Computed example of a mutant assay.
Amino acid sequence: MTTRTVPGPRERLLAAAKELTYEQGVSVGVDALLKRANVARRSLYEHFGGKDGLITEVLRVSADEDEAAYRRAMLAAGDDPRGRLLAIFDWLDGVIQEPDFRGCRYLAAELALAPDHPAHAVTRRYRERVHDLLATELRALGHPRPDPAAAQLFLLIDGALAVGATRPAAHPAAAARQLADHVIGG
């Protein structure tokens, strides 16, 4: 006999918030979140202290998943640091072409949330971790200015994701890859 585990209210709230905040933005209403998760309002407050806590936790979980996706894309490119860095843009090109792509959830949240929202600490930390990932590859490549170059690569990533949300047919990740090649040097 097998038993099927049904996700609890916390997991359902996280899943609903992850979907709805990406589809509609972080300003999505609490009632829509509760309805999608099929939970009572009390569950939101018991597990997250309110919507701000839920949004913060969704971004934290998503950041871990997205950082892992960057690492997988780089790992799949092999041992060459240059190839690993450029592989990010090839991977992003595929991400942008997905039919449900809506842009960068972190940039959208940063723009929409009040300056004192606790989720900003999560997005800041996520950006630091991805920057460090890029800088580590640039150091391995022997780049003379790895930290500024990592910031430039991150700017290209942000730009590709932003343009990809509005004009995916322009293949902004491919254009960003060409610029990244110049930043990386050779």
Results as ranks from 00 to 15, higher is better:
35 K>Q: 14
151 A>L: 10
89 F>L: 06
105 R>C: 08
26 V>I: 03
140 A>W: 08
58 V>N: 09
166 T>L: 03
72 R>E: 09
21 T>G: 11
10 R>G: 00
16 A>M: 10
173 A>Q: 13
15 A>H: 00
128 E>Y: 04
60 R>C: 01
97 Q>I: 10
53 G>C: 02
89 F>N: 07
30 V>D: 00
128 E>S: 14
13 L>D: 04
186 G>E: 10
58 V>E: 07
151 A>R: 12
164 G>F: 15
75 L>M: 07
118 P>Q: 05
116 D>C: 11
1 M>Q: 01
13 L>A: 02
79 D>W: 03
96 I>A: 04
186 G>P: 15
123 T>R: 07
20 L>I: 09
33 L>F: 05
147 D>P: 00
21 T>S: 15
75 L>V: 00
133 L>T: 13
159 G>T: 11
93 D>E: 15
138 L>D: 05
46 E>V: 15
68 A>D: 13
14 L>Q: 09
133 L>A: 08
157 I>A: 01
45 Y>D: 15
76 A>S: 14
11 E>T: 15
156 L>F: 01
102 R>G: 04
73 A>Q: 09
84 R>M: 03
156 L>E: 14
118 P>D: 12
109 A>H: 02
76 A>R: 07
163 V>R: 13
96 I>F: 14
175 A>P: 05
36 R>N: 08
112 A>M: 04
65 E>F: 11
83 G>Q: 07
143 H>C: 09
106 Y>L: 06
125 R>D: 15
22 Y>K: 07
10 R>P: 06
95 V>D: 04
149 A>M: 06
44 L>N: 02
73 A>Y: 13
48 F>W: 13
19 E>C: 04
10 R>K: 08
176 A>Q: 10
7 P>Q: 09
124 R>D: 10
16 A>S: 13
90 D>N: 05
52 D>P: 03
151 A>M: 08
65 E>N: 06
95 V>C: 03
158 D>K: 06
72 R>N: 02
111 L>Y: 06
76 A>M: 11
94 G>I: 06
118 P>G: 09
142 G>F: 08
159 G>Q: 12
91 W>Q: 01
179 L>G: 04
77 A>K: 02
125 R>C: 12
33 L>R: 04
79 D>F: 15
157 I>P: 00
128 E>I: 08
65 E>T: 05
